[in-house]
C-alpha cells in the first residue's frame, strides 16, 4: 500500500485516538499534579430558614468563595507534586499498620482495601471464565446441528444484557427476602442475609461477572474450534488418545493465542470492576479501585469534588492495568517473534 493511502485510512482513527484518549489522559495526568481551589474568605452571614411555624435565624462565620467581576468563582491552581498520590495511597497509615503487623488495620485504608478486592476479583474470575468459556464452546461444538442455533442464542443472553441491569436483577433475586434468598432459606432452614457481610457480596459479584463474561469467551473459543485441524484429531484418535488427552494436547494448544487474547481483555476489564459495586450497593463492605475514583469525583451536596485525588487514583488504576498486562504481552511478543 502506498504511504499516502495508508495515511489517509489511518488518519481519522489516529485523530480520534488523540482527541478522545490521548489528550484527556494527558489532562488527567496533569491534574493529578495540580490542585485547583476556590479562594475563600470568612464572612459573617445571617441565615433564616423556616421552622414549622416561625423562622429560625442563625448568624455564623462561613467560608464563602470570592467572585470575580464576571460573577465566576475565583480559583487558584498550585503545583503539589505527588501530594494527591500520597493522599490516595496513605503511606503513613500503611506504615502504622505494618508496624503492628495488622492486616485488618491495613484493610481499613480505602485504596488498599479496594486493591485487595480488585485483585482477588480479577484473579478468581479469570480461570473461571476461561474454563466456563471453553466448556460452553465445547458443548456448542458437540451439539447436533439442529440444536446449535438455540444453544448459541441461550448462552449469549447474559452478554446481551446491559451490565448494570444484570447486576440489579441479581441484586433483586437476593436482597431481603428475594426469591433466591427465600429459596435458600427454605432449603437450608436458616436465616440468610446475602447483603450483610463482605464475603457473600464478593461471591455474588464474582458469580455475576462470570455469568456475564463467560459467553464472550465461549464465542471466541467456539470460533477457534472451527479451525482445529481434523487430521490431527483423527490421528490422535487412532493413537488411542482419550477425549481428555485430545483436549489437552491438540485443542488447547491450538486455542492458545485465543486464550491469551481473552485473558488480556478480561484482565483489563476485571481490573476496572465497577458496575458490581454500584449494582449491589456494596460500598459499605466492598469497594473497587474504579469505584474509589468515581467516589472522589461525585460532588457532595455542597458541590465539592476531589478532582486531584480522582485523577491520581485514575492514574494509579492505569498503572495497575499495565503491570498486570506486561507478562501476558511479553508472552505474545515472544510467540510472535518465534513464529517468524
Amino acid at each position: 500500500m502506498k504511504f499516502r493511502t495508508f495515511a489517509a485510512f489511518v488518519a481519522p482513527s489516529i485523530l480520534m485516538m488523540l482527541l478522545f484518549i490521548a489528550f484527556p489522559l494527558v489532562s488527567v495526568l496533569k491534574q493529578s499534579f495540580y490542585l485547583t481551589q476556590p479562594v475563600y474568605e470568612m464572612v459573617e452571614v445571617e441565615t433564616c430558614t423556616p421552622g414549622f411555624l416561625t423562622q429560625t435565624c442563625v448568624t455564623e462565620t462561613k467560608a464563602q468563595p470570592q467572585l470575580d467581576e464576571f460573577g465566576k468563582i475565583v480559583t487558584t491552581t498550585t503545583f503539589v507534586g505527588l501530594q494527591s498520590y500520597q493522599n490516595v495511597l496513605e503511606f503513613g497509615r500503611v506504615k502504622a499498620a505494618w508496624a503492628k503487623r495488622s492486616w485488618s488495620e491495613f484493610q481499613t485504608i480505602d485504596f488498599w482495601k479496594a486493591l485487595r478486592f480488585t485483585l482477588t476479583f480479577t484473579f478468581i474470575t479469570l480461570p473461571l471464565i476461561l474454563g466456563m468459556g471453553l466448556g460452553i464452546a465445547l458443548v456448542i461444538n458437540n451439539a447436533t446441528r439442529a440444536l446449535r442455533g438455540p444453544v448459541i442464542f441461550l448462552s449469549l443472553l447474559p452478554m446481551i444484557i446491559t451490565p448494570v441491569i444484570g447486576a440489579l436483577s441479581i441484586r433483586w433475586l437476593f436482597i431481603g427476602d428475594g426469591i433466591l434468598t427465600a429459596g435458600l432459606e427454605w432449603w437450608l432452614e436458616r436465616d440468610i442475609a446475602m447483603f450483610a457481610q463482605a464475603w457473600t457480596l464478593e461471591l455474588m459479584m464474582m458469580f455475576y461477572r462470570v455469568w456475564h463474561v463467560a459467553p464472550f469467551a465461549a464465542i471466541i473459543f467456539y470460533a477457534g474450534l472451527q479451525t482445529v485441524n481434523q487430521d490431527s484429531l483423527e490421528s490422535a484418535v487412532i493413537d488411542g488418545a482419550s477425549r481428555w488427552q485430545r483436549l489437552r494436547y491438540v485443542i488447547v494448544p491450538h486455542l492458545m493465542p485465543l486464550i491469551v487474547f481473552v485473558t488480556l481483555i478480561h484482565l483489563m476489564d476485571a481490573y476496572r470492576v465497577f458496575e458490581e459495586v454500584v449494582g449491589f450497593s456494596s460500598q459499605a463492605h466492598v469497594i473497587s479501585l474504579q469505584w474509589l475514583t468515581y467516589d472522589f469525583l461525585v460532588p457532595d451536596q455542597a458541590g465539592n469534588r476531589s478532582v486531584s485525588r480522582a485523577s491520581a487514583s485514575a492514574m494509579l488504576t492505569m498503572i495497575g492495568i499495565v503491570i498486570l498486562l506486561v507478562p501476558v504481552l511479553r508472552r505474545t511478543w515472544r510467540d510472535h517473534r518465534g513464529g517468524h
Binding site: E46, T47, C48, T49, P50, L53, T54, Q55, C57
Partner: peptide, 9 residues
Amino acid sequence: PNQLIKVDG
C-alpha cells in the same frame, strides 16, 4: 414570612 429564606437580609 416563614417561607422566605433569607441570607444576610
